[in-house]
Every structure is written in structure tokens, then in C-alpha cells.
């Protein structure tokens, strides 16, 4: 490594940094901006982010829904035992091999009422590409696992335990062309949450 660069940068910072400003103490903000039922808020905000939701009772029902929603889907890849896909996924699967996946299925750890996002890590995806390469995503979520807002969410998150973790809010989106909102910019074209207890 360029060890002199490291020293030079740190030395310059020590020389130049302004007088110390104390760290503000953060009060409990876990109810900030949140009013009402968490699940209802989650659904509302998921919709706003162009996500869909369904409430089902079993993995079988999920498989049936996938057939109904995506009748032409050839490759279904599931990282959750409740749903059997057509293509197995293992930690040493080459991520490039997911390029032709039509529907990716996994279970999220929890949802966030404030914005309709879900938290997902490589543990849930098996390999991270499953979260972004499939054309469509089906995400199982325990309806009892909804936290209020991002303050509550970051209390649940263990960054030290995962190399990848993502708050995913609906499908991929862009407004880079003429400010027109388009889903499926690069990641999934659609994202549906299935409320199914764990």
C-alpha cells in the first residue's frame, strides 16, 4: 500500500481540522413520521414505490401465484425453502448463471413502514445477484416483521455480519429520460411482497 499517502493524509487532517465539535446525542426517533398501523403504512408506501403485495397461506400458494402472474416464466430461482424453483441456487453458484432468471424468490428479514422497503442480505439471497438480475422478484415477508422507520430499521441491521445488505424499495426505477418514471431500469422490473408468516 502507499503508506506515505496514508500518513500524509492523516497528518494533513490533524494539522487542518477545525476545533472539535462534540457528537450530538440522538434521542429515540423510532416513531418519527409514523402515525397509524405499521402494516397498513408499509402497504401504502410499497404501492407508492410501485411494489405489489399479496397475503397467502403457504409456499404452494406462492408457486401457484407465480404461475398465474408469470405464465411464460421459464426459469424460477428460489432462495427460500417454502418455494421450489426450477433452478437451484447455492453459495458457489456463478452469479452470471442467473442472467436468464425470469423470477427470483427470497424471504426478506423485515419491512419498513416509513417507506415500504424490505431489508435483505446475502444470507437471504444465497448469492447477491438474485436480488438484482431476475426480471421479476417475489419476496416473502412475515407481516409481523414490520418496523416503524429507518431509525428502528438500523437497530435491526447487523452490518458486521453480512458483506451485503440492501433496503430495497419496490422495483428498479429511473426518471433519467424526459423525467418520465419507468420501472425496470436495470434491476427487477417488478417486485411483489407476499405476506406469509415465517
Amino acid at each position: 500500500m502507499m503508506s506515505t499517502s496514508r500518513t500524509d493524509i492523516l497528518t494533513a487532517i490533524r494539522k487542518n481540522k477545525p476545533a472539535a465539535v462534540p457528537r450530538p446525542t440522538l434521542r429515540d426517533l423510532s416513531s418519527s413520521g409514523i402515525e397509524g398501523d405499521l402494516l397498513a403504512l408499509f402497504k401504502k408506501h410499497l404501492k407508492e414505490a410501485d411494489g405489489e403485495f399479496y397475503r397467502l397461506e403457504s409456499g404452494k400458494e406462492v408457486s401457484a401465484l407465480i404461475k398465474k402472474l408469470f405464465p411464460d416464466a421459464k426459469v424460477i430461482c428460489s432462495a427460500t425453502p417454502e418455494v421450489k424453483g426450477s433452478r437451484p441456487i447455492k453459495p458457489d453458484t456463478d452469479p452470471h448463471s442467473l442472467a436468464d432468471v425470469d423470477v427470483g424468490v427470497f424471504r426478506a428479514k423485515f419491512g419498513v413502514a416509513e417507506n415500504g422497503a424490505i431489508w435483505v442480505t446475502e444470507e437471504d439471497l444465497v448469492i447477491t445477484a438474485l436480488g438484482v438480475l431476475p426480471e421479476h422478484l417475489i419476496v416473502l415477508l412475515d407481516p409481523d416483521r414490520i418496523v416503524s422507520n429507518m431509525h428502528a430499521a438500523y437497530r435491526e441491521v447487523k452490518l458486521d455480519e453480512h458483506h451485503y445488505g440492501c433496503f430495497m424499495m419496490g422495483p428498479s426505477a429511473t426518471a433519467d429520460i424526459g423525467a418520465v418514471h419507468v420501472n425496470g431500469a436495470q434491476g427487477s422490473r417488478s417486485l411483489a411482497i407476499i405476506f406469509l408468516a415465517h
Binding site: 414505490a49 453459495p91 422497503a117 448469492i127 452490518l159 458483506h163 451485503y164 433496503f167 419496490g170
Partner: peptide, 19 residues
């Protein structure tokens, strides 16, 4: 930035993927 609640993907990287 755009008046959305968060970005569609807020991704956290802590170390490399396997291999």
C-alpha cells in the same frame, strides 16, 4: 434529492463476496 423517501436500493457493503 428527488423527493422520494429513500432510493430504490440503499446498499451496504461490508467486505468482499465469497471468492
Amino acid at each position: 434529492a428527488l423527493g422520494s423517501k429513500i432510493t430504490q436500493y440503499t446498499s451496504h457493503f461490508s467486505g468482499p463476496r465469497k471468492n
